[in-house]
Amino acid sequence: MASTPGKFLTDLDTLDNLPGLQQVEQLRRTDKAVTIAGRRHGRDVVAKQLTSSERHWGKRFAHEVGAYREFATTPVPWRVPRLHHAGPRLLVIERLPGAPPHTDRYPPRLPQPVVTGMIDALTAFAAWQPPPGMLSTPVTDWPARIRRYAATGDLPGDVQQPLLDAVTDTPLVFGHGDPLASNALTDPGQPLVFIDFEFTGMYPPGADLALLGLWLGRHDPGAEQRCAQIVEATGSLHTYQAMRVLWFAREQRLYKSLFDVVDDREHRQWLDDQTADAVTGLRRTVGRG
């Protein structure tokens, strides 16, 4: 496997050169990283090498390394992989048993026990109070993002203030930030666990479930309804609806470039319809207020 050249790499900061690492199989390759399964010092491990030189992904990689270090010093009430090695562009962690329930961003309808496991795991994240430090800070500047989206036409102007109010008027909670099915592990008889903590940190209440409901709801509307009902029971439905609008705006931005090269009119129409519904739902909530 070829290493990525660049001034950021050290002799030990590649999959090829880390002493004792025996590569078994490639798990994933994207435009930002290569992830492999292997063994090191007699233990099953997963190693991820950052291959992108983009500043954004460098920051996200460093954030994930920091998260694993925090978890190592502050026990959490869910299972996380043990950290074995960390460099500027190479991360080696314990390989937990299990496999992702699916690898698509918008997976087909998943078995209900898997959906329940994902919801339960995200609910546990939100109930945990991290100690002061990197995990107790907001992952992004939500007001700045809202203003940026509104300025570029990705949000209707009349919902800008309701969105700002929703993300600033309530205490933040801990969240995973990227609850893709591909970032989860299922193992028979064991609770579902999430891995990949590039975006973990503090979020408005319901943000994780809003994102999970968006992705699962493409082929399983009932899963989104479950997420909304759980958040409503905690009194955070308004924030959930606001985050749903923001997540759909992000999805629209992510897919704009893809629409130029991929003929996926059905998905584009679904995104348009769901975005409109999310905005309408937020407007109704504000109107009732």
Rank of each mutant, 00 (worst) to 15 (best):
M1G: 10
M1S: 12
M1W: 09
S3W: 09
T4A: 11
K7P: 03
F8A: 14
L9I: 02
L9K: 14
D13L: 00
L15P: 03
L18M: 06
Q23K: 15
V24C: 02
Q26S: 13
R28W: 14
T30W: 02
V34M: 12
V34P: 06
G38Q: 01
H41L: 10
R43A: 10
E54M: 11
E54I: 04
E54R: 14
F61R: 00
V65Y: 07
E70I: 01
E70F: 04
A72R: 04
V76G: 06
W78V: 01
W78L: 02
W78P: 05
W78Y: 02
R79P: 06
L83E: 05
R89N: 06
V92Q: 00
E94C: 04
L96W: 07
P97V: 05
A99W: 12
H102G: 14
T103F: 04
R105G: 10
L110N: 07
L110V: 09
V115W: 08
T116R: 12
G117M: 03
Q129N: 15
P138E: 11
W142H: 13
W142M: 10
P143L: 08
P143E: 10
R148D: 15
T152K: 09
G153S: 04
G153M: 08
G157Q: 08
G157D: 02
D158R: 05
V159A: 05
D165P: 09
D165T: 13
V167C: 10
T168C: 13
T170N: 11
T170Y: 03
V173K: 10
G177V: 04
G177M: 07
A181P: 02
S182C: 05
L185I: 01
D187V: 00
G189Y: 06
Q190E: 15
F194I: 06
I195W: 09
I195S: 00
F197W: 14
T200V: 12
P205E: 08
A207R: 01
R218W: 08
D220H: 07
P221Y: 05
G222I: 08
E224V: 04
C227I: 06
A233E: 12
S236L: 04
H238Y: 14
M243Y: 09
W247N: 15
A249W: 02
R250T: 14
V261D: 07
V262N: 11
D263C: 09
H267C: 07
H267P: 01
R268N: 14
Q269P: 06
Q269I: 10
D273K: 00
D273P: 00
Q274C: 13
A276Q: 15
T285A: 15
G287L: 14
R288S: 14
